[in-house]
Each structure stands twice: as C-alpha cells, then as structure tokens.
Design a protein around this nucleic acid. Structure first.
Lengths: 218, 218
DNA sequence: CGCCTTCGATCGTTATAACAAACAACGAAG
DNA sequence: CTTCGTTGTTTGTTATAACGATCGAAGGCG
C-alpha cells in the first residue's frame, strides 16, 4: 500500500480499498487514520468529495523537509560517529561496495533499497530510537515526490562519494565531519530531485516556476 | 484527556473510557490509536492485560528527547531570527513581561501556559509548519514527566533570562544567538526537571541513580 | 508440594448496518 | 438565462454485536 501506488492529490476511498482487499471498512479506516496521524496522508473534506489524499508537494515544503532532514540526520550521523565501534562498520562497508557496483550497472531499484538501508544502518549506530523514528517519518513524507521522480532518476557518483566520506568520518570518530557529509548528501540529492521534479511539473512551484503554472490551479 | 489524567505506566481501557464518556468504543479507539500513532501512548499487549499505556520515561530517553528538542527548536529559533519583522515581536514582548510578573508571584499554572505560548509564538515566526508540528509532538512526548514534576516546580529566574536573550537575538536578527539561547534554555530546564523527577523517583534511572532502584522493578 | 493443562474472563479487533454531512445535479422561479 | 432551493448520491463516522487472542486462576497429575 505504501509502494507508491498513489500519486500526490489522488483520492483514496475507504470502501474502494476495502473491496479491493476483501475486508471490512474498519481496518482500512484504521490504517488510513494512522497514516493521517503520521502526516503521510491528509484528510480530504468529508461528503462526496471526501477521502484521504497524499499531500501535494511544493518547493518550499520540500525545502523545509530537507532542512529538517539535515538537522535530524546530521545529529544522528554525529552521534553515530561518537558511539560506534569499529566492528559496527562492516555492514556499511559491504553496503557501500554493493551500491557502487549498482551505480556502474545503473541498477536503480535495488540501489535505492540499499541506499535506504545504508542511511538507516548508519543512523542505528547512534542508538537514538526516537530520533530514528522521526527520520523514518520524514522519509515517508518525502516519499510521494521520490516515487514519481525515480523513473527519471540518474545514478550519480557524487552521492556515493559523500557516503564514503560519511563512513570515513565514522571510522575516524569525527562527529562534525560525519554530520557535514550527511547534510551535504541530503542537500545534493535534494537539489537534484527538485530539478527533476520541477522539470516534470510534479512539484508545484507557484512563485518562481520556469513554466507558466497552468496545472497549479486544479 | 490530555490534561495529565493518566500517569506513566497506567493502563487505559477502551470500554472504561467509552463508558465514562457515554459513547461507543469506536471513537475512543480512534482517539487512542491516533495518540499511539503519534507515540504519545504505547500499545500494551493484547488480551487481558491489554490496553494503552503512557510510555515510561527514563533518563536516557528523556535526554534523547532533549537533544532532539535542541536541534529542532534551535533551528526554528534561528529561522525565526532570519525571517521575523520587528513588528512581529510585540506579542513576545508582552508574553515575556507577563511571565516575569508571574515568576515574582510564583503563579505556576498560568506561567506554564504562557511559557508554552512564548515558545510556540516564537517558532511560528520561522514559518516552518512541518517543523512546528514535530516540535509540538516532542513536547507532547515530554508531557508525562512534566505534569508529574509541576507540583514541585520552582520558578527560576534563569529561564527568564534565556528567554530575554532569545528575544533580543530575534530583534537583532542574529540566528546563531537565537538558536544558542533556546538550546541553553532547553538544556537548563532539562537538567532541572531531571533533578526533580529523579529525586521524586518518577524517572527510571537504572544505571546511575543516586538511590537503590527499589521501585524500578514494578 | 510443584508443575502442567484447561477453562474462563477480559480486552482489542473486525464486520455490518444505520447515521450524518457535503457536494452535485436538477428544476422551478425570477 | 441566471439563481436559488431541493433532492439524491457519495463517503466518512458511529453504534453494536460477534470474534480471537491472551493472561490468570483453578484443578488434575506426577
């Protein structure tokens, strides 16, 4: 259900999903309400036009999410550098090596999975479970844009370098360097994503869009 | 329902609350599930011992919450300093003056209300609604400890000074100073709260508690 | 006397039907 | 032709009953 099956602005109807899954309204409503509580979905107005919708994204909102990610994940990386033992880094080494191979092969889907695992394995070393939950939530809230951009996503070497830098910082126990690397990684990828999504017209950019916002009105 | 009616570890039974409010199970279940999704409550194991419980707090957990607060609210303060106009600060001036008067009078309850309003009025100036929501959530998750400590809370002048410093930084447009003041405020209050709660045995401190943890087993 | 099984009570979950709100389409009056 | 009221449909919400899982206590067996 979270596999990007719904795009931004798309309505999700309880009875529809319930029928599709062959279950009653109640569990579907529970699940949707939970996602709404986590701000992964938004509540559409009741009545005929009701239903839950995946929130529309615009550049200022996406930039705010990116800023929060920098703070949260920068903190997690710094704390990980302070707390990790050298034995903890084996998994990250393997992950990074696999990721580099996948970049050469331009294998997108499995790369993205490993990319996610790399980040969260790293953050897990910080031993801050509450922070980890918050980061996971922000990733979910960034999700809708990403799933749309993915088909056009081109694998970059630059991100890989920043991952390497972060891992080196962890090995050196350098908290500041780890935080900086992660923050740069987030900003770098963010700029790239915004460029792609804006060009595809998927992110609403009411102020400074390079095209007349004909679709923004709907 | 959020007025601190339940203490850490206390079970909340759906049928009980439903009967008390004279309504059906469903809306109660919805509300509780939402609070669980927001991590304000935790799910007790099903069956006879089921029910929702307010999460127990310990020092490492509380410290993690404080660290996150420093990052989030520090960012909000910095951004507020960058974005606020001088005309926006009138409300904060009035709030601060009232707060100082209430400290002299040792009027606790209304002080805490104004204290909260001061912080969130300040963060609102950052115009980062997503960040604001996250901060609100973290405050809620800190709530259980605070409501227990409040009766013994003694109003400090120090916090007031840090609030003044933050406001001055906003007026000067100094982002770093604003963030620093807010972070110090959080750490200062945090240290004080931990001291009170630990002395009262309300926070579990398994490792370095100054007393034998007789109550921790229950 | 101790341990394992079994039964019963408790409590969250699911299903189903009735309810309420809200939007859209239609029709009548101006 | 426009505008306002009405009606019908759609969709989330609430109530109620049946279900399933789990924990504790009682009773039988070693």
């Amino acid at each position: 259900m979270l596999g990007g099956r719904f795009g931004p602005g798309e309505r999700i109807l309880l009875r529809e999903v319930a029928a599709e899954l062959g279950i009653s309204l109640t569990p579907v409503r529970d699940a949707v309400n939970r996602l709404i509580a986590e701000h992964v979905l938004e509540r559409g107005s009741s009545g005929q036009g009701g239903g839950a919708v995946v929130p529309r994204m615009d550049v200022v909102r996406f930039d705010e999410l990116l800023t929060i990610r920098c703070d949260l994940e920068g903190r997690a990386a710094a704390r990980a550098a302070e707390r990790c033992a050298s034995g903890d880094l084996g998994v990250l080494d393997e992950l990074l090596a696999e990721m580099k191979a996948l970049i050469r092969d331009q294998n997108l889907n499995v790369y993205l999975d490993l990319h996610r695992r790399f980040h969260f394995e790293l953050y897990a070393l910080a031993r801050m479970p509450i922070l980890e939950g918050l980061i996971e939530n922000i990733w979910l809230r960034c999700g809708p844009v990403l799933t749309y951009v993915i088909p056009d996503y081109v694998l970059l070497e630059k991100g890989s370098d920043l991952h390497t830098a972060a891992l080196s910082a962890l090995r050196a126990g350098d908290a500041d360097a780890a935080a900086t690397a992660i923050r740069q990684d987030i900003r770098e990828a963010g700029r790239y994503i915004v460029g792609l999504a804006d060009a595809a017209g998927l992110i609403e950019n009411p102020a400074v869009s390079h095209r007349p916002q004909a679709h923004a009105a709907s």
